[in-house]
Nucleic acid binder design. Structure first.
Lengths: 239, 239
DNA sequence: GCACAATTGGCACCAAGTGCCATGCGCGGC
DNA sequence: GCCGCGCATGGCACTTGGTGCCAATTGTGC
């Protein structure tokens, strides 16, 4: 019966428990609401103890957010896989597209993704954790981008800003997609988002990268980029 | 001694307890680390009970994040106060500048802001809460922007993307500023960030706003305004 | 069959929050 | 001056997330 000789029985058992836990958790959480389900209930539904639950998931949020955990590495991997001569807007668009693909995937666990996303976006605690992950992705994306463009992430603001823009697009698409019950096409939403961001991405990159030998565009422009009139009046602080 | 006759004694007392709590919490948390300080300790240091702590702050994170809570409304207020004919890049830049002003303020509790920001950025739990706030700010900024430009936030992606870009700039500046021990000028970092984002902001806005009656700019441009063909495919794609 | 590691469950324990109630204090009315 | 009202407080019990520890079980290699 074992089609995977390199996978021991213990490992399969572990995987099975993990799946059972995820399954039970996701269903109950989506049904009753995140904070109306205790971990004891989830564990009991999966047939294990609460103590065992925490041997598989670091927290209650983890069991939900884990579904999207590998999106980050996926985005970065896709970016790294794009040809270097590709302009940032295109490369980043494909990177985000790769992440959205698992949402658009209508075959496997299609609506599962939709349920998870909607649960996350409407539960503050989950949303917070998710944003934390995104922050990590942004760091990774920024370093990847910097290395790709030969920039120094310690001095150039561009990599971080570009990564942030890409993830802003990702976030916007996710939100729209989940708000529309998955009716809208994630890929099309992504394209539209990058149609807004893209020109900025490339123009900015050209202006901010001092080296990067072959810059075909004249990049003329009255930049007005330096300082501007000092400071708008500050507003009152708290109270 | 009471310079505020319209403020009752009870209110001042409450305010005093709140300040005492914030003070104690901030100092201890920054000193020992966020999760190495219990609420009982903070409360005890402020001379109240743990139960009272929770009558002033919703959570342990709240007492720290509260310091930055009003930044969001400040940003939105500043955006709303900018003249309508101002292009989004300029208006948003000033909005972010207004928020950064409290950080640049070297007079009052200058380093206090730096301490808080650094504590938040390097503590996962606080970072998560902070990002949650930012997500809320982005929603607010997006609706404000949509209303300012006469766009429908339900169909146009631009407001959300623009708000996200502005907050990306904010976040990037904050991070750089705190990483450099406050040595760099927040206003200058903000200007540099918007020098990257700005052109995109305006170009995209012109392209995405179909109506907007009084557009002084000729807005010439091959508009290509609506949907784009399935995929821009400006370069080569292979999949 | 036997030692060995891994998995598990139960238990005690800590910290974050919350609900409830009794107490104390300021403040206005009488 | 006394009384009652409102409010802030403190203490307590309780729930829940999360962890450390240990004993029992189970699978694995020899």
């Amino acid at each position: 019966m074992s089609a995977r000789p390199d996978v021991t029985l213990a490992q399969r058992k572990r995987r099975l428990v993990s799946d059972e836990l995820s399954e039970a958790a996701l269903q109950m959480l989506a049904l009753k609401g995140f904070d109306l389900v205790t971990i004891d209930e989830i564990a009991a539904a999966a047939g294990v103890s609460k103590r065992t639950f925490f041997r598989y998931f670091a927290s209650k949020e983890d069991v939900v957010v884990r579904f999207l955990a590998d999106l980050g590495s996926g985005i970065r991997a896709e970016l790294a896989a794009r040809p270097v001569q590709e302009p940032p807007s295109v490369a980043l668009r494909h990177a985000v597209l790769a992440a959205m693909a698992v949402c658009a995937d209508r075959s496997d666990h299609a609506d599962r993704a939709l349920v998870v996303v909607r649960l996350i976006l409407r539960t503050p605690a989950l949303r917070a954790r998710f944003l934390e992950h995104q922050a990590q992705w942004r760091d990774d994306l920024a370093t990847e981008l910097a290395q790709r463009l030969g920039l120094d992430p310690g001095t150039d603001l561009y990599p971080r800003l570009a990564a942030g823009m890409a993830l802003t697009a990702f976030d916007t698409v996710l939100q729209r997609w989940s708000a529309g019950d998955g009716a809208e096409d994630p890929a099309e939403l992504t394209d539209r988002s990058f149609a807004v961001l893209g020109p900025a991405l490339d123009a900015a990159e050209r202006r901010d990268a001092p080296e990067q030998g072959a810059a075909p565009s004249p990049a003329a422009d009255p930049p007005r980029s330096g300082k501007l009139p000092a400071r708008p009046r500050s507003f009152r602080e708290h109270e």
